[in-house]
Design a protein around this nucleic acid. Structure first.
Lengths: 259, 259
DNA sequence: CGTTTAATTGATCACTATCAACCGTCGTGG
DNA sequence: CCACGACGGTTGATAGTGATCAATTAAACG
């Protein structure tokens, strides 16, 4: 489960075997959702390039000309934005089956950096060819629109979080969101590895690293989670979900055991 | 300029004259960007319905089945989200030429309420017909994707704001954003009317109404703006822009004249 | 190992929320 | 036309949350 191919070896043959949407384990989540075998083959003919991105490397950077979307095949990414003052902020975390680069379509230049959080692999989706193909394959068009819309929804969720939730709620929501996404990929929703640092979580949630650290400690003391370094176990997902929708001033009286 | 037809009378004739993309004053900003006369005509044949929405009325509501996108023709809207605790939050403000409903494509049901901030008028864009047509008109397809991407970018901007900016910066950014959007529509970037209440601004920016009120007062005392009720004049747009990128701890020493 | 980076924990401070009182404006109906 | 009421907005006093500053501790890496 935690195994990422540490050595993706001299690849052509492997490519021929595995580098197809039809055989990719993510095809139930990724762009090819809803395509029949024939259409999937046509999509395969457009998505020919795979790219490995080592931990810490950039897949694309702000300002770079946009030509491809990317689908995460293996691994995890973060997207970051650097504002005029030089402050870097995390705008998202992407895992296998998720697409990167939607924000670049409008201006044809990337608005964020995409950085691998571990050794990862992506499929290159030449955007204009995807557009061509989605004019011929309504199911592809439809699902492509769905995925863009999903990205809009995701960001709205984050907006709502940043606008209205307190620190505790934000972190709880973040953990539950990760859990959900892992579950859909067939991984455990309860136990997983945080691929990002506390600082990156904080940046994403609009909080400081110290707050993240303190909150994790508090959640642990409350028996909601178990954490050791980057390994985390959600011991009480329902409890976390309750936290999320707990209104500010509501009876934090009854239980607030330690500390 | 402030004139909304108070009585859009027994409309067929008016419709024939005005209710076409080709003659709409927003066609440089709205969906038909980049279409030639012929394609515009085809789009006209799909966008046949206009709808008036009076101040305070809902164009669509959360949970409602999605069939149409909407383009604002005249007036202003807000989109709001109501969470499980019943808290209502503003997620966006839309003006003429902007599209509403992108977030509903993924699940085919609306994720937000759209409410008119003044008597307004929208064009109904039957989504499946737009998809059909954009398979036939690459320029339409391209621009449609651009508009969705723009929406993603807009929300990212808001995320960055909510995650990293302080109250003062948020409000300054908000005002400058409005100014830019009015300018592109040929209106004054400096003087305009706030169509939303202070409370709605606060909700959108993750602040309370009291904070908005205080900040407007402070901006006024600093000579950055002039406000009276909903009328606002940006006296020093550069000053506002400077505020936005002013880092937290930076010399608030030199100038902080009155209270 | 030694050095660097990530994380934890504590003490204090600042920003903005909250609570509260009050004012002005607009719309309505007497 | 004026009085009333409701709503939106302003202003002040206080408090809470999370930032900031600072000091350790723990892990990761060469």
């Amino acid at each position: 489960m935690s195994s990422i191919p540490t050595q993706l070896s001299p690849g052509i043959e492997i490519a021929a075997l595995r580098n197809k949407c039809s055989t990719c384990s993510m095809h139930e989540l990724c762009l090819p959702v809803g395509l029949d075998v024939d259409d999937m083959r046509r999509l395969d003919s457009v998505i020919t390039k795979r790219r490995r991105v080592l931990k810490g490397e950039m897949l694309f950077r702000m300002g770079e000309r946009f030509t491809n979307l990317y689908a995460v095949r293996v691994g995890h990414f973060k997207t970051t934005h650097i504002d005029s003052t030089g402050l870097e902020q995390v705008t998202g975390f992407q895992m296998a089956g998720e697409l990167l680069g939607f924000d670049a379509i409008a201006t044809e230049s990337h608005h964020c950096n995409a950085v691998a959080l571990e050794d990862s692999e992506v499929c290159e989706l030449p955007f204009s060819r995807i557009e061509d193909l989605s004019r011929e394959i309504p199911n592809l068009q439809r699902h492509f629109h769905r995925m863009m819309s999903q990205e809009i929804t995701r960001e709205q969720g984050l907006m709502l979080m940043l606008g209205a939730m307190r620190a505790e709620q934000r972190l709880a929501a973040f953990l539950v969101n990760l859990a959900t996404r892992y579950a859909r990929r067939g991984y455990s929703a309860k136990a997983f590895q945080l691929r990002m640092t506390r600082e990156e979580i904080g940046s994403y949630l609009g909080l400081t690293i110290e707050s993240i650290s303190r909150l994790l400690t508090r959640f642990r003391k409350q028996g909601l989670i178990a954490v050791a370094h980057k390994e985390i176990v959600l011991l009480d997902i329902e409890g976390l979900k309750t936290l999320i929708s707990t209104t500010n001033n509501s009876e934090s009286l009854s239980i607030k055991p330690c500390d």
